[in-house]
Every structure is written in C-alpha cells, then in structure tokens.
Amino acid sequence: MASNDLLKGMLKPIILKLLLENGKMYGYEITQLVKEISGGEIELTFGALYPILHKLEVEGIVKTESEVINNRNRIYYSITQKGNSKAKEKIAEFEEMVKTLKVFFKPNFGLKYEFIG
C-alpha cells in the first residue's frame, strides 16, 4: 500500500479525474472507487478526502448539491463549468509528472554511469 507521504500530492488529481469521468459523486463513493481501481493499493481515508473536497469547492473547481437519501442528507460533488478546464489542466500536469517519474525510476538509470565510470 502506498504510504501517506507519497499520496499527499496525488490525491487532488485522482479525485478530479474521478469526478470528471463519473459526473457527480459523494464522499464515500469516491473512497470506495479509489480503493477498487487501485486494487487496495491506495487508501483514501475520509480524513484526507473531505479537506481536499472543501478546498476544491472554495476554489470554485467543484460544486455541491444536497439530496436526501436513506433518511439522511448526502452531499454530491461535481466539476463546475469554470473548473472543467482547470481540472483537466491539473490532471494533464500530473500525467506529465508520472511519465517523468517512470523514466526516472527505470532500472539503473542514472546510476549505471556512476558505477561503471
């Protein structure tokens, strides 16, 4: 399972990606989907999730709507029109980063020359 340190910067793009693809989602649904997709590798706790969702809401990237489900209020999040391009931008930025990291962590990359030289 990925450690918390590694997860820190990743959560925002992951949440945005899920919201972009699934339309409106609520908190518990997001945590479950992350778990499912990552095969249990990434555990998005609700303690990490809600602060990020609220931050995104304040930034105007996502909006909320409330619905009564099973006798209780459920808050759904979805990407706003204004936030759409920003969300895509952030995801693209993250994908770029992942590509770079992959190159970086190729076997022996960068180290080969040190040892042979």
Binding site: Y26, G27, Y28, F46, Y50, S66, N70, R72, N73, I75
Partner: peptide
C-alpha cells in the same frame, strides 16, 4: 461547524 461537513461525515459513517 463547517457548512455541509457534519452532514457529509454522518453520511460517510452511515455508509461505512
């Protein structure tokens, strides 16, 4: 006291 947060937390705990 944050808007929505308590409702969300209730819903989340209920789901769990």
């Amino acid at each position: 006291t944050i808007n929505n947060l308590s409702q969300e937390l209730v819903d989340h705990i209920c789901c769990e």
